[in-house]
Computed example of a mutant assay.
Amino acid sequence: MSCAPACAAKLVETRASRLAALAARERFRLRSARLARRAAQREAARRVPVAPGPTPALPPAAAAALQRALAKAKRD
């Protein structure tokens, strides 16, 4: 069963339009998945607790001054 050239052209045009719409839908789906994955990665990075390293109770200069004062107090 064949149709007139105008009918065949309309079928080709409709098919091309449909394929373009399907491709656009697939691109949108991939973009949405990519954005969701990036958002999840950012959220996971935000939630990673930063383990504080051992911090000295006093700054080095204050600790040295305290040590000197303790040593002087023990001598006296």
Rank of each mutant, 00 (worst) to 15 (best):
L58C: 00
L35V: 07
R75M: 11
K74H: 13
R29T: 13
V48H: 00
Q41N: 07
A64Y: 03
A39I: 03
R37W: 08
A63H: 00
A71L: 11
A62T: 00
A63Q: 02
S2G: 13
A69G: 02
A40Q: 05
R42L: 10
A33P: 09
R31A: 12
A73L: 11
R18H: 11
T14Q: 11
A6V: 12
P60I: 00
P59C: 02
T55R: 04
A71P: 01
V50H: 04
M1T: 15
Q41Y: 06
A63G: 00
K10F: 14
K72C: 15
R37C: 09
R34I: 11
E26Y: 02
L19V: 10
A62L: 06
V12K: 08
R37A: 13
L11P: 09
R34D: 12
R15V: 12
R42I: 10
R31W: 11
Q41S: 05
A9P: 01
A61W: 00
P49Q: 05
A33R: 07
A6G: 14
A9I: 06
L11E: 15
C7F: 05
Q67A: 08
A63T: 00
R18T: 14
R29C: 13
D76Q: 14
T55S: 03
R29N: 15
L22G: 02
A4T: 15
R47P: 02
V50A: 05
C3D: 15
T14C: 10
R68C: 07
C3Y: 13
L58N: 00
P5S: 03
K72W: 15
A51Y: 05
A40T: 03
R42S: 07
P59V: 00
F28A: 15
M1G: 14
A20R: 04
E26G: 04
G53H: 07
A73P: 07
R42Y: 04
A33M: 11
A45Q: 08
Q41L: 08
G53Y: 07
R38W: 07
A40R: 03
A39V: 04
A71V: 07
A8N: 09
R42A: 10
P59H: 02
A39L: 08
